[in-house]
Nucleic acid binder design. Structure first.
Length: 415
RNA sequence: CGGAGUGUAGUACAACGGUAGUAUGCGCGCUUUGGGAGCGCGUGAUUUGGGUUCGAUUCCCAGCACUCCGACCA
Protein backbone atom coordinates (compact mmCIF):
# COMPACT_ATOMS: atom_id res chain seq x y z
CA UNK A 1 0.00 0.00 0.00
CA UNK A 2 1.30 3.40 -0.92
CA UNK A 3 0.94 5.86 1.92
CA UNK A 4 -0.01 8.67 -0.43
CA UNK A 5 -3.07 6.65 -1.47
CA UNK A 6 -4.58 6.04 1.98
CA UNK A 7 -7.25 8.61 2.61
CA UNK A 8 -6.39 8.99 6.27
CA UNK A 9 -3.60 11.23 7.50
CA UNK A 10 -1.78 11.40 10.76
CA UNK A 11 -2.25 14.26 13.20
CA UNK A 12 0.54 15.94 15.03
CA UNK A 13 -1.50 17.05 18.03
CA UNK A 14 -3.34 14.88 20.50
CA UNK A 15 -7.09 15.26 20.08
CA UNK A 16 -8.71 17.54 22.62
CA UNK A 17 -11.01 15.73 25.05
CA UNK A 18 -9.40 12.33 24.86
CA UNK A 19 -7.41 11.02 27.77
CA UNK A 20 -7.01 7.33 27.12
CA UNK A 21 -3.94 6.19 25.23
CA UNK A 22 -5.82 3.99 22.78
CA UNK A 23 -8.21 6.76 21.79
CA UNK A 24 -5.40 9.29 21.36
CA UNK A 25 -3.03 7.12 19.36
CA UNK A 26 -5.61 5.37 17.18
CA UNK A 27 -7.15 8.70 16.19
CA UNK A 28 -3.84 10.48 15.66
CA UNK A 29 -2.54 7.66 13.51
CA UNK A 30 -5.74 7.62 11.46
CA UNK A 31 -7.06 4.16 12.39
CA UNK A 32 -10.41 5.29 13.78
CA UNK A 33 -12.71 8.31 13.59
CA UNK A 34 -14.82 9.39 16.50
CA UNK A 35 -18.51 9.88 15.75
CA UNK A 36 -19.85 10.15 19.30
CA UNK A 37 -18.85 9.13 22.78
CA UNK A 38 -18.29 5.39 22.57
CA UNK A 39 -18.95 5.24 18.84
CA UNK A 40 -16.06 5.05 16.39
CA UNK A 41 -15.81 4.42 12.68
CA UNK A 42 -12.97 2.20 11.48
CA UNK A 43 -10.87 3.70 8.69
CA UNK A 44 -8.77 1.67 6.23
CA UNK A 45 -5.83 0.83 8.48
CA UNK A 46 -8.08 0.42 11.51
CA UNK A 47 -10.23 -2.05 9.65
CA UNK A 48 -7.19 -4.07 8.59
CA UNK A 49 -6.22 -4.47 12.24
CA UNK A 50 -9.78 -5.23 13.31
CA UNK A 51 -10.08 -7.88 10.60
CA UNK A 52 -6.80 -9.48 11.63
CA UNK A 53 -8.02 -9.84 15.19
CA UNK A 54 -11.37 -11.09 13.90
CA UNK A 55 -9.66 -13.77 11.85
CA UNK A 56 -7.61 -14.99 14.79
CA UNK A 57 -10.76 -15.29 16.88
CA UNK A 58 -12.68 -16.97 14.05
CA UNK A 59 -9.94 -19.56 13.49
CA UNK A 60 -9.80 -20.48 17.16
CA UNK A 61 -13.56 -20.75 17.44
CA UNK A 62 -13.72 -22.96 14.38
CA UNK A 63 -10.90 -25.07 15.83
CA UNK A 64 -13.15 -25.99 18.79
CA UNK A 65 -16.09 -26.88 16.61
CA UNK A 66 -17.86 -23.54 16.58
CA UNK A 67 -20.19 -22.96 13.64
CA UNK A 68 -20.39 -19.37 12.53
CA UNK A 69 -23.73 -17.65 12.07
CA UNK A 70 -24.93 -14.11 11.69
CA UNK A 71 -28.04 -13.45 13.72
CA UNK A 72 -30.19 -10.44 13.12
CA UNK A 73 -29.44 -7.25 15.01
CA UNK A 74 -33.13 -6.34 15.29
CA UNK A 75 -34.65 -8.24 18.16
CA UNK A 76 -38.37 -8.91 18.61
CA UNK A 77 -39.88 -7.58 21.81
CA UNK A 78 -41.99 -10.70 22.43
CA UNK A 79 -38.89 -12.91 22.59
CA UNK A 80 -37.31 -10.81 25.30
CA UNK A 81 -40.55 -10.72 27.23
CA UNK A 82 -40.44 -14.52 27.43
CA UNK A 83 -37.24 -14.33 29.48
CA UNK A 84 -38.49 -11.28 31.36
CA UNK A 85 -35.56 -9.19 30.12
CA UNK A 86 -37.43 -6.58 28.07
CA UNK A 87 -38.64 -4.45 30.97
CA UNK A 88 -36.00 -5.59 33.45
CA UNK A 89 -32.24 -6.05 33.54
CA UNK A 90 -30.29 -5.77 30.32
CA UNK A 91 -33.32 -5.04 28.15
CA UNK A 92 -34.44 -2.19 30.33
CA UNK A 93 -31.00 -0.82 31.13
CA UNK A 94 -28.77 -1.19 28.09
CA UNK A 95 -30.81 -2.21 25.05
CA UNK A 96 -31.50 0.48 22.47
CA UNK A 97 -35.12 0.28 21.44
CA UNK A 98 -36.69 1.56 18.27
CA UNK A 99 -40.39 2.22 18.09
CA UNK A 100 -42.00 2.58 14.72
CA UNK A 101 -44.98 0.50 13.64
CA UNK A 102 -43.69 -2.19 15.96
CA UNK A 103 -41.17 -1.99 18.77
CA UNK A 104 -37.83 -3.78 18.38
CA UNK A 105 -34.51 -3.82 20.21
CA UNK A 106 -30.96 -3.58 18.86
CA UNK A 107 -29.11 -6.69 19.96
CA UNK A 108 -26.90 -6.24 23.02
CA UNK A 109 -26.50 -10.05 23.32
CA UNK A 110 -28.18 -13.03 21.67
CA UNK A 111 -29.17 -15.73 24.16
CA UNK A 112 -32.86 -15.29 23.46
CA UNK A 113 -32.59 -15.25 19.73
CA UNK A 114 -30.23 -18.17 19.33
CA UNK A 115 -32.00 -20.37 21.89
CA UNK A 116 -35.26 -19.67 20.12
CA UNK A 117 -33.71 -20.76 16.83
CA UNK A 118 -31.96 -23.92 17.98
CA UNK A 119 -35.03 -25.28 19.74
CA UNK A 120 -36.46 -25.92 16.29
CA UNK A 121 -33.55 -28.20 15.44
CA UNK A 122 -32.59 -29.88 18.71
CA UNK A 123 -34.95 -32.73 19.47
CA UNK A 124 -32.85 -35.62 20.73
CA UNK A 125 -29.63 -36.09 22.75
CA UNK A 126 -28.23 -37.08 19.36
CA UNK A 127 -28.42 -33.46 18.22
CA UNK A 128 -26.11 -32.33 21.02
CA UNK A 129 -23.62 -30.90 21.76
CA UNK A 130 -23.70 -27.84 19.58
CA UNK A 131 -21.52 -24.72 19.52
CA UNK A 132 -22.53 -21.62 17.57
CA UNK A 133 -20.77 -18.29 17.36
CA UNK A 134 -21.00 -14.99 15.56
CA UNK A 135 -18.83 -11.92 15.13
CA UNK A 136 -21.10 -8.93 15.02
CA UNK A 137 -21.61 -5.34 16.03
CA UNK A 138 -23.35 -5.08 19.36
CA UNK A 139 -25.25 -2.11 20.75
CA UNK A 140 -25.40 -1.22 24.41
CA UNK A 141 -26.72 1.97 25.91
CA UNK A 142 -23.77 2.49 28.21
CA UNK A 143 -24.53 5.08 30.85
CA UNK A 144 -20.97 6.20 30.54
CA UNK A 145 -19.03 5.27 27.44
CA UNK A 146 -15.34 5.91 28.01
CA UNK A 147 -11.72 5.20 27.24
CA UNK A 148 -11.91 5.01 23.46
CA UNK A 149 -12.44 1.47 22.24
CA UNK A 150 -12.44 0.04 25.74
CA UNK A 151 -16.05 0.82 26.52
CA UNK A 152 -18.27 1.66 23.59
CA UNK A 153 -21.95 1.89 22.88
CA UNK A 154 -21.42 0.21 19.51
CA UNK A 155 -18.65 -2.38 19.35
CA UNK A 156 -17.54 -5.55 17.62
CA UNK A 157 -17.92 -8.70 19.68
CA UNK A 158 -17.59 -12.42 19.22
CA UNK A 159 -20.26 -14.34 21.08
CA UNK A 160 -20.19 -18.11 21.28
CA UNK A 161 -23.00 -20.20 22.79
CA UNK A 162 -22.80 -23.90 23.55
CA UNK A 163 -25.63 -26.37 24.08
CA UNK A 164 -25.26 -29.66 25.94
CA UNK A 165 -27.20 -32.68 27.10
CA UNK A 166 -25.51 -32.74 30.51
CA UNK A 167 -23.65 -30.56 32.99
CA UNK A 168 -20.59 -32.81 32.59
CA UNK A 169 -20.51 -32.29 28.87
CA UNK A 170 -20.79 -28.54 29.41
CA UNK A 171 -17.89 -28.63 31.91
CA UNK A 172 -15.62 -30.34 29.41
CA UNK A 173 -16.45 -27.87 26.70
CA UNK A 174 -15.95 -24.97 29.09
CA UNK A 175 -12.35 -26.11 29.58
CA UNK A 176 -11.90 -26.39 25.82
CA UNK A 177 -13.09 -22.81 25.33
CA UNK A 178 -10.70 -21.62 28.06
CA UNK A 179 -7.77 -23.02 26.11
CA UNK A 180 -9.03 -21.50 22.87
CA UNK A 181 -9.22 -18.10 24.54
CA UNK A 182 -5.64 -18.37 25.75
CA UNK A 183 -4.62 -19.06 22.16
CA UNK A 184 -6.47 -15.99 20.92
CA UNK A 185 -4.74 -13.70 23.39
CA UNK A 186 -1.35 -15.26 22.84
CA UNK A 187 -1.66 -14.93 19.08
CA UNK A 188 -2.73 -11.31 19.50
CA UNK A 189 0.42 -10.57 21.45
CA UNK A 190 -1.29 -10.19 24.81
CA UNK A 191 -0.85 -11.74 28.19
CA UNK A 192 -4.26 -12.52 29.63
CA UNK A 193 -4.89 -13.58 33.21
CA UNK A 194 -7.83 -15.89 33.72
CA UNK A 195 -9.78 -14.56 36.65
CA UNK A 196 -12.64 -15.90 38.70
CA UNK A 197 -15.62 -13.60 38.61
CA UNK A 198 -19.10 -13.35 39.99
CA UNK A 199 -21.21 -15.99 38.36
CA UNK A 200 -24.49 -14.15 38.05
CA UNK A 201 -26.17 -16.65 40.37
CA UNK A 202 -24.18 -19.63 39.16
CA UNK A 203 -21.04 -21.13 40.65
CA UNK A 204 -17.84 -19.09 40.32
CA UNK A 205 -16.27 -22.30 39.05
CA UNK A 206 -17.99 -21.50 35.77
CA UNK A 207 -17.53 -17.78 35.43
CA UNK A 208 -14.16 -16.55 34.28
CA UNK A 209 -12.86 -13.32 32.84
CA UNK A 210 -9.75 -12.90 30.74
CA UNK A 211 -8.06 -9.83 32.16
CA UNK A 212 -5.26 -7.79 30.63
CA UNK A 213 -3.33 -5.73 33.13
CA UNK A 214 -3.42 -2.05 32.25
CA UNK A 215 -3.70 1.18 34.20
CA UNK A 216 -6.63 2.28 32.07
CA UNK A 217 -8.64 -0.83 32.89
CA UNK A 218 -11.93 -0.56 34.73
CA UNK A 219 -11.56 -3.75 36.73
CA UNK A 220 -9.37 -4.56 39.69
CA UNK A 221 -7.98 -8.04 40.16
CA UNK A 222 -6.00 -9.81 42.89
CA UNK A 223 -3.66 -12.31 41.33
CA UNK A 224 -0.48 -14.32 41.73
CA UNK A 225 2.35 -14.27 39.22
CA UNK A 226 2.48 -18.07 39.39
CA UNK A 227 -0.78 -18.17 37.47
CA UNK A 228 -2.47 -20.29 40.11
CA UNK A 229 -4.81 -17.63 41.46
CA UNK A 230 -6.69 -14.59 40.23
CA UNK A 231 -10.00 -13.14 41.38
CA UNK A 232 -11.98 -10.08 40.44
CA UNK A 233 -12.31 -7.58 43.28
CA UNK A 234 -16.09 -8.18 43.11
CA UNK A 235 -15.72 -11.58 44.73
CA UNK A 236 -12.33 -11.31 46.39
CA UNK A 237 -12.12 -11.97 50.12
CA UNK A 238 -9.79 -9.22 51.35
CA UNK A 239 -8.61 -11.37 54.23
CA UNK A 240 -6.69 -13.55 51.77
CA UNK A 241 -3.11 -12.29 51.49
CA UNK A 242 -1.23 -15.15 49.88
CA UNK A 243 -1.63 -17.37 46.87
CA UNK A 244 -3.30 -20.63 47.89
CA UNK A 245 -1.21 -22.46 45.30
CA UNK A 246 2.36 -21.19 45.79
CA UNK A 247 1.94 -19.10 48.98
CA UNK A 248 3.49 -15.97 47.43
CA UNK A 249 1.93 -12.64 48.29
CA UNK A 250 -0.95 -11.71 45.99
CA UNK A 251 -0.72 -8.62 43.79
CA UNK A 252 -3.43 -6.09 43.02
CA UNK A 253 -3.78 -4.50 39.57
CA UNK A 254 -6.13 -2.55 37.33
CA UNK A 255 -7.10 -4.56 34.29
CA UNK A 256 -9.17 -4.66 31.11
CA UNK A 257 -11.76 -7.41 30.81
CA UNK A 258 -11.21 -8.65 27.27
CA UNK A 259 -13.38 -11.73 27.44
CA UNK A 260 -15.60 -13.69 29.75
CA UNK A 261 -17.04 -17.16 29.77
CA UNK A 262 -19.75 -18.54 31.98
CA UNK A 263 -22.43 -21.08 32.58
CA UNK A 264 -26.03 -20.33 31.74
CA UNK A 265 -27.40 -23.60 33.13
CA UNK A 266 -30.93 -24.16 31.89
CA UNK A 267 -32.23 -20.65 32.51
CA UNK A 268 -32.82 -19.77 28.86
CA UNK A 269 -33.68 -23.24 27.63
CA UNK A 270 -36.43 -23.50 30.24
CA UNK A 271 -37.94 -20.07 29.67
CA UNK A 272 -37.78 -20.36 25.88
CA UNK A 273 -38.70 -24.03 25.67
CA UNK A 274 -35.48 -25.59 24.35
CA UNK A 275 -35.80 -29.24 25.37
CA UNK A 276 -34.42 -32.52 24.07
CA UNK A 277 -35.34 -36.16 24.68
CA UNK A 278 -32.69 -38.14 26.55
CA UNK A 279 -31.73 -41.81 26.11
CA UNK A 280 -34.50 -42.85 28.46
CA UNK A 281 -37.11 -40.98 26.50
CA UNK A 282 -37.36 -38.24 29.12
CA UNK A 283 -37.69 -34.60 28.10
CA UNK A 284 -34.84 -32.45 29.48
CA UNK A 285 -33.85 -28.77 29.22
CA UNK A 286 -30.70 -28.06 27.21
CA UNK A 287 -27.66 -27.05 29.30
CA UNK A 288 -26.04 -23.88 28.00
CA UNK A 289 -22.79 -21.90 28.17
CA UNK A 290 -21.96 -18.45 26.91
CA UNK A 291 -18.59 -17.06 25.87
CA UNK A 292 -17.97 -13.44 24.95
CA UNK A 293 -14.90 -11.71 23.55
CA UNK A 294 -14.75 -8.02 22.68
CA UNK A 295 -12.87 -7.70 19.42
CA UNK A 296 -12.79 -3.91 19.12
CA UNK A 297 -12.05 -3.70 22.83
CA UNK A 298 -9.15 -6.10 22.27
CA UNK A 299 -7.79 -3.72 19.63
CA UNK A 300 -7.91 -0.92 22.17
CA UNK A 301 -6.31 -3.08 24.82
CA UNK A 302 -3.42 -3.95 22.51
CA UNK A 303 -2.68 -0.25 22.02
CA UNK A 304 -2.99 0.40 25.76
CA UNK A 305 -0.31 -2.14 26.60
CA UNK A 306 1.90 -1.79 23.52
CA UNK A 307 2.99 1.79 22.88
CA UNK A 308 5.67 4.32 23.71
CA UNK A 309 5.99 8.11 23.71
CA UNK A 310 6.10 8.17 19.91
CA UNK A 311 3.16 5.94 19.09
CA UNK A 312 1.77 2.45 18.73
CA UNK A 313 3.85 -0.73 18.65
CA UNK A 314 1.71 -3.36 16.92
CA UNK A 315 2.36 -7.05 17.57
CA UNK A 316 3.14 -8.60 14.20
CA UNK A 317 0.05 -10.80 14.02
CA UNK A 318 -2.34 -7.84 14.16
CA UNK A 319 -0.22 -5.09 12.58
CA UNK A 320 -1.78 -3.18 9.68
CA UNK A 321 1.42 -3.82 7.70
CA UNK A 322 4.49 -5.83 8.63
CA UNK A 323 6.92 -3.37 7.04
CA UNK A 324 6.98 0.38 6.73
CA UNK A 325 9.31 1.40 3.92
CA UNK A 326 10.76 4.92 3.99
CA UNK A 327 12.81 6.44 1.19
CA UNK A 328 14.74 9.41 2.61
CA UNK A 329 15.68 11.80 -0.14
CA UNK A 330 18.86 13.84 -0.38
CA UNK A 331 17.67 16.82 -2.37
CA UNK A 332 20.07 16.02 -5.19
CA UNK A 333 18.26 14.92 -8.29
CA UNK A 334 20.54 12.14 -9.43
CA UNK A 335 20.83 10.55 -6.04
CA UNK A 336 17.12 10.83 -5.39
CA UNK A 337 16.41 8.94 -8.57
CA UNK A 338 18.64 6.14 -7.35
CA UNK A 339 17.06 6.17 -3.91
CA UNK A 340 13.57 5.97 -5.36
CA UNK A 341 14.57 3.28 -7.81
CA UNK A 342 15.93 1.16 -4.98
CA UNK A 343 12.92 1.83 -2.75
CA UNK A 344 10.54 0.92 -5.57
CA UNK A 345 12.40 -2.31 -6.08
CA UNK A 346 12.23 -3.20 -2.39
CA UNK A 347 8.52 -2.37 -2.39
CA UNK A 348 7.83 -4.53 -5.41
CA UNK A 349 9.92 -7.41 -4.07
CA UNK A 350 8.00 -7.42 -0.82
CA UNK A 351 4.64 -7.08 -2.57
CA UNK A 352 5.51 -9.98 -4.86
CA UNK A 353 6.27 -12.12 -1.85
CA UNK A 354 2.83 -11.30 -0.49
CA UNK A 355 4.26 -9.40 2.48
CA UNK A 356 2.22 -6.45 3.72
CA UNK A 357 4.21 -3.27 3.32
CA UNK A 358 3.33 0.38 3.73
CA UNK A 359 5.40 2.47 1.34
CA UNK A 360 5.89 6.10 2.32
CA UNK A 361 5.98 7.52 -1.18
CA UNK A 362 5.14 11.06 -0.05
CA UNK A 363 8.28 12.59 -1.39
CA UNK A 364 7.46 16.14 -0.38
CA UNK A 365 7.56 15.12 3.26
CA UNK A 366 10.70 15.68 5.28
CA UNK A 367 12.69 12.84 6.79
CA UNK A 368 11.63 13.83 10.27
CA UNK A 369 7.96 13.68 9.45
CA UNK A 370 8.31 10.27 7.84
CA UNK A 371 10.09 8.88 10.88
CA UNK A 372 7.55 10.41 13.23
CA UNK A 373 4.67 8.91 11.23
CA UNK A 374 6.33 5.51 11.12
CA UNK A 375 6.62 5.51 14.91
CA UNK A 376 3.05 6.71 15.35
CA UNK A 377 1.52 4.14 13.00
CA UNK A 378 3.63 1.44 14.59
CA UNK A 379 4.37 -1.21 11.97
CA UNK A 380 6.67 -3.85 13.53
CA UNK A 381 9.59 -3.28 11.12
CA UNK A 382 10.88 -0.10 9.50
CA UNK A 383 12.99 -0.13 6.36
CA UNK A 384 14.92 2.94 5.22
CA UNK A 385 16.48 3.57 1.83
CA UNK A 386 18.66 6.70 1.71
CA UNK A 387 21.91 8.07 0.41
CA UNK A 388 23.64 6.53 3.43
CA UNK A 389 22.28 3.07 2.80
CA UNK A 390 22.92 3.28 -0.94
CA UNK A 391 26.59 4.08 -0.32
CA UNK A 392 26.83 0.77 1.51
CA UNK A 393 24.67 -1.01 -1.02
CA UNK A 394 22.19 -1.93 1.67
CA UNK A 395 18.87 -1.22 3.38
CA UNK A 396 18.45 -0.14 6.96
CA UNK A 397 16.13 -2.22 9.11
CA UNK A 398 14.81 -1.35 12.55
CA UNK A 399 12.25 -3.00 14.76
CA UNK A 400 9.61 -0.63 16.11
CA UNK A 401 10.13 -2.13 19.54
CA UNK A 402 13.88 -1.53 19.55
CA UNK A 403 16.30 1.33 19.00
CA UNK A 404 18.86 -0.73 17.17
CA UNK A 405 19.23 -0.39 13.44
CA UNK A 406 21.07 -2.79 11.23
CA UNK A 407 22.07 -2.77 7.61
CA UNK A 408 20.93 -5.63 5.44
CA UNK A 409 21.79 -6.40 1.85
CA UNK A 410 18.52 -7.61 0.56
CA UNK A 411 14.88 -8.14 1.46
CA UNK A 412 15.57 -11.85 1.26
CA UNK A 413 17.27 -11.46 4.61
CA UNK A 414 14.21 -10.08 6.31
CA UNK A 415 11.48 -12.45 5.35
C1' C B 1 -28.06 8.39 36.17
C1' G B 2 -25.44 12.01 40.14
C1' G B 3 -21.00 15.39 40.43
C1' A B 4 -17.03 18.39 38.18
C1' G B 5 -14.75 20.57 33.93
C1' U B 6 -14.58 22.18 28.79
C1' G B 7 -17.00 24.04 24.04
C1' U B 8 -13.13 29.71 19.23
C1' A B 9 -10.21 28.01 11.81
C1' G B 10 -9.22 20.89 9.60
C1' U B 11 -6.06 20.34 14.38
C1' A B 12 -4.00 22.53 19.05
C1' C B 13 -4.22 27.06 21.72
C1' A B 14 -4.94 32.83 22.78
C1' A B 15 -8.10 37.23 23.19
C1' C B 16 -9.94 43.52 29.80
C1' G B 17 -17.56 43.67 27.74
C1' G B 18 -15.40 47.31 22.23
C1' U B 19 -11.33 45.60 14.81
C1' A B 20 -11.25 37.64 16.94
C1' G B 21 -4.87 36.55 17.13
C1' U B 22 -0.78 32.58 17.21
C1' A B 23 1.03 27.80 15.82
C1' U B 24 0.17 23.83 12.75
C1' G B 25 -2.45 22.03 8.46
C1' C B 26 -4.07 23.08 3.46
C1' G B 27 -2.96 25.88 -1.70
C1' C B 28 0.90 28.53 -4.77
C1' G B 29 6.23 29.96 -5.44
C1' C B 30 11.37 29.41 -4.18
C1' U B 31 14.95 27.12 -1.02
C1' U B 32 15.35 22.33 1.69
C1' U B 33 15.75 16.49 2.92
C1' G B 34 18.42 10.95 8.75
C1' G B 35 13.81 12.81 13.67
C1' G B 36 7.45 16.63 12.59
C1' A B 37 12.66 22.19 7.81
C1' G B 38 12.89 27.89 6.06
C1' C B 39 10.97 32.46 3.72
C1' G B 40 6.89 34.93 1.14
C1' C B 41 1.76 35.12 -0.40
C1' G B 42 -3.07 32.99 0.20
C1' U B 43 -7.07 30.00 2.79
C1' G B 44 -9.83 29.31 7.12
C1' A B 45 -13.29 29.86 13.29
C1' U B 46 -16.47 32.01 18.20
C1' U B 47 -21.85 24.90 19.95
C1' U B 48 -27.44 26.26 19.93
C1' G B 49 -31.43 29.26 22.01
C1' G B 50 -32.78 33.00 25.37
C1' G B 51 -31.30 37.13 28.79
C1' U B 52 -28.32 41.57 30.67
C1' U B 53 -25.88 45.67 27.82
C1' C B 54 -25.24 51.18 23.44
C1' G B 55 -22.24 46.81 22.35
C1' A B 56 -21.32 39.66 24.34
C1' U B 57 -16.15 34.96 22.21
C1' U B 58 -16.19 37.22 27.15
C1' C B 59 -21.37 38.01 32.11
C1' C B 60 -26.27 35.18 33.44
C1' C B 61 -29.98 31.07 32.36
C1' A B 62 -31.35 26.80 29.53
C1' G B 63 -30.30 23.09 25.81
C1' C B 64 -26.80 20.09 23.14
C1' A B 65 -21.90 17.84 22.86
C1' C B 66 -17.31 15.99 24.73
C1' U B 67 -13.84 14.57 28.82
C1' C B 68 -12.99 13.10 33.86
C1' C B 69 -14.84 11.14 38.89
C1' G B 70 -18.81 8.17 40.93
C1' A B 71 -23.04 4.72 40.35
C1' C B 72 -23.93 0.95 36.66
C1' C B 73 -21.65 -2.89 33.49
C1' A B 74 -26.07 -10.40 31.13
Amino acid sequence: MKQSQIFTKTQKENPKDEKSINAILLQRAGFIYKEMAGVYSFLPMGLIVLNKITNIVREEMQAIGGQEVNLSVLQPKALWQKTDRWDKGIGQEVMYKVKDETEVGLGPTHEEMLTDIIKNYIESFDDLPLAVFQIQTKFRKEARAKSGLLRGREFLMKDLYSFHSSQDDFKNYYETVKQAYFKVFERSGLKAIITEASGGGFSKDFSHEFQIISQDGEDTIYYCSCGGFSQNEEIFDKKIKNCPVCLKELQKAKSIEAGNIFSLGTKYSQSLGAFFTDKNGVKQPVVMGCYGLGISRLMGAIVEVSNDANGIIWPEAVAPFTYHLLPILSGKKEQDEQILEKANKVYNDLQNKGIAVLYDDRNKKSAGEKFADADLIGCPMRLVVSQKTLEQNSIEAKKRSSNETKLIKDVKQIS
